[in-house]
């Protein structure tokens, strides 16, 4: 079997699984949608964190920002936002399907664009920071945005916003948002697969390996870093918008900017699967999500301690991740050539 046929079969299987899963397990549609979101989280974190070597702790910023932009668009199209949030749920919005879908589509689009703009602005600020300052700086930006939204009355402050109710059958609603999540994650994957094959992927890796050298060679490092972050922001914004509608109610600390849950899951999933690889984040996300969903309820009260311990163990003992480990073990399969006697220079003599 040729390589492309194998790859084709693999993608076909995934596609069938993706479509079939919610039909087979209709009770778990939400969890399955969440799985796609996790995959998207891991993939987008890996752009800067793995491929570029800029470890961010604040990517969740775009998730929350996208969520709020979308929610405000949906509400603001037909109501006064201030009055709506002030009533804190007392105003029941009744949208016709046309109104609802106009709002949803426009909201998602604006969330994506808004997050790109946000990434460009914050990129200016945070990409001057290197190494640990970058990680702490991004963490600070994410925490600060949660705090600021939490005190901003116009958007509902800590009380949050209820989203417009889906005009129709709950099962159809679940399937719609499942589909959107699956589409967003698949889109991200295919986009990144293409992206890493271009010069862009090489430039990101060059920045990771030696940024000073990259600068000395005239690479537009700031441009690459900003665009990389904007790409993360774009997809995170979309999925944030979708997730907001999926839960139906958003508030800053737990839903929109969950820095210490989703924000950390992103990092952990990538480390688990192997950073700087295309499939690593996907594998890490699937594994992490399944293990988490299965064990979480049995660990009542202890789940966060387990999570923390998992981070420590992962970071100390298994930082290369599953795919990274496989690449070390079978480099030939990854198209890497390792010359076992490389250090002795024989070619050099020529």
């Amino acid at each position: 079997m040729s390589k492309s046929v194998k790859a084709g079969l693999l993608y076909a299987c995934i596609l069938i699984l993706g479509i079939g899963a919610p039909l087979l397990f209709p009770d778990y549609t939400f969890q399955l949608a969440l799985l796609w979101i996790m995959i998207l989280f891991a993939l987008t974190w890996d752009i800067a964190g793995g491929q570029m070597g800029y470890n961010s702790l604040g990517n969740i910023l775009f998730f929350g920002a996208g969520m709020y932009i979308c929610a405000l668009t949906q509400v603001g199209l037909y109501y006064d936002i201030g009055a709506y949030t002030a009533a804190s749920g007392a105003i029941k919005v009744d949208y016709t399907p046309q109104q609802y879908f106009t709002g949803l589509i426009l909201g998602i689009a604006l969330a994506a664009v808004g997050c790109v703009v946000l990434a460009a602005i914050f990129g200016r600020i945070v990409f001057g920071l290197r190494g640990p300052y970058f990680a702490i700086g991004t963490l600070g930006v994410a925490l600060a945005s949660a705090e600021l939204i939490g005190t901003w009355g116009y958007v509902g402050a800590g009380g949050g916003i209820s989203l417009p109710v889906y005009p129709g059958d709950p099962d159809a609603r679940a399937m719609l948002f499942y589909g959107l999540c699956a589409l967003a994650a698949t889109g991200t994957f295919l986009f990144l697969r293409w992206l890493y094959g271009t010069s862009f992927g090489l430039a990101l890796n060059a920045i990771r390996d030696d940024e000073e050298k990259a600068e000395a060679m005239g690479i537009h490092t700031t441009r690459y870093k900003t665009v990389a972050w904007a790409i993360s922001g774009f997809f995170l914004g979309i999925v944030g918008a979708v997730f907001g509608n999926m839960t139906g109610f958003i508030e800053p600390l737990e839903v929109a900017f969950p820095t210490t849950t989703f924000g950390i899951f992103m990092v952990l999933m990538v480390l688990l699967g192997g950073k700087g690889t295309l499939w690593g984040p996907v594998i890490g996300a699937v594994l992490f999500h399944i293990v988490k969903e299965v064990t979480w309820t049995y660990l009542l009260g202890w789940q966060w301690i387990t999570l923390g311990a998992l981070i420590i163990v992962n970071v100390i003992f298994f930082q290369q991740g599953i795919v990274g480990w496989m690449r070390e073990k079978w480099p030939e399969r990854f198209g890497l050539v390792v010359d076992r006697r490389a250090t002795i220079s024989s070619q050099e003599e020529s």
């Binding site: 010069s199 090489l202 890796n205 060059a206 390996d209 030696d210 050298k213 005239g218 690479i219």
Partner: peptide, 23 residues
Amino acid sequence: RIYGKLDCMQNMMISIPHRTAAW
């Protein structure tokens, strides 16, 4: 200084002149 985790060809490809590089 080279890019250690890229292979030699990749090292070369990314070293093209960026003088006229557009977005």
